[in-house]
Simulated scan of single mutants.
Amino acid sequence: MATTKPIPQGAHTLTPNLVLRDCAKAIEFYKKALGAQELMRMPSPDGKLIWHAELKIGDSTFYLNDEMPGMSTAAPSPEHPAPTTFWLWTEDADAAYRKATQAGATSRMEPADMFWGDRCAGVADPFGYSWSFATHVKDLSDEEVRRAGAEFARQWEQQHQRT
């Protein structure tokens, strides 16, 4: 007798689920902007909504569905974005940023080297979600990160006292 696995094969312990308005359009955007691969799509019986879809970016899967009043939380929007950012590790943060902005994402942070050793960039998608792209470019000791962080904080404070 076979036993059912409590966590499905290939699933990670934590899997985000994005609630959207126009999930079908979002799926096509994520394919173009983020290189997502569509694994499955389950439309409602009338075909007007997507009850559940699964996309994969790199080695990570995430779920999506259309907003369904009374059954899920409200979808975010560009005017009322989700208070969450998805962090994507990539071979080339600059290229990922360019691809996303060319597909219609709005720049939130142009690619830049960060004090902790990563090159990062950020965008907002047309559906109210934020995405950060990161490429690890430099290995640093804990002490090097601490010193660089302190210098970053000092400069940040100086810049924001003037404004």
Rank of each mutant, 00 (worst) to 15 (best):
M1N: 11
A2K: 13
A2N: 12
T3L: 15
P6G: 03
P8H: 10
Q9K: 13
G10C: 09
A11P: 00
A11S: 11
A11R: 01
L14F: 10
L18K: 08
V19E: 02
L20C: 05
R21Y: 11
D22P: 04
K25I: 01
A26C: 10
I27D: 05
I27T: 02
E28K: 10
F29N: 04
Y30L: 06
K31G: 01
A33K: 02
A33S: 04
A33E: 02
L34F: 05
L34M: 06
L34A: 01
G35Q: 08
A36H: 03
A36K: 02
A36C: 07
Q37C: 03
L39S: 00
M40C: 05
M40Q: 03
M42A: 00
P43T: 05
G47I: 12
K48Q: 12
K48M: 04
K48L: 05
I50H: 06
H52W: 02
E54S: 02
E54P: 00
I57V: 15
I57W: 06
D59P: 00
S60T: 14
L64M: 15
L64P: 02
D66T: 08
P69A: 10
M71P: 00
S72R: 11
P76R: 02
S77N: 12
S77I: 14
P78K: 15
E79F: 11
P81Q: 04
A82E: 13
P83G: 15
T85P: 04
T85W: 03
A93I: 11
A93D: 08
A96G: 15
R98I: 11
A100Y: 06
A100N: 08
Q102T: 09
Q102R: 03
Q102Y: 01
A105M: 08
S107F: 09
R108P: 03
R108K: 14
M114S: 10
F115L: 12
F115Y: 10
W116H: 05
G117F: 05
D118T: 13
D118G: 08
R119A: 07
V123T: 07
P126I: 10
F127Y: 15
F127V: 07
G128R: 09
G128H: 09
Y129Q: 02
Y129V: 02
W131D: 02
F133M: 07
A134E: 04
H136W: 12
H136R: 13
V137R: 06
K138L: 12
S141I: 04
S141R: 05
E143W: 00
E143Y: 00
E143Q: 09
G149T: 13
E151L: 14
F152S: 00
A153P: 01
A153S: 09
R154N: 06
R154P: 00
Q155H: 10
E157W: 02
Q158A: 14
H160R: 12
H160A: 04
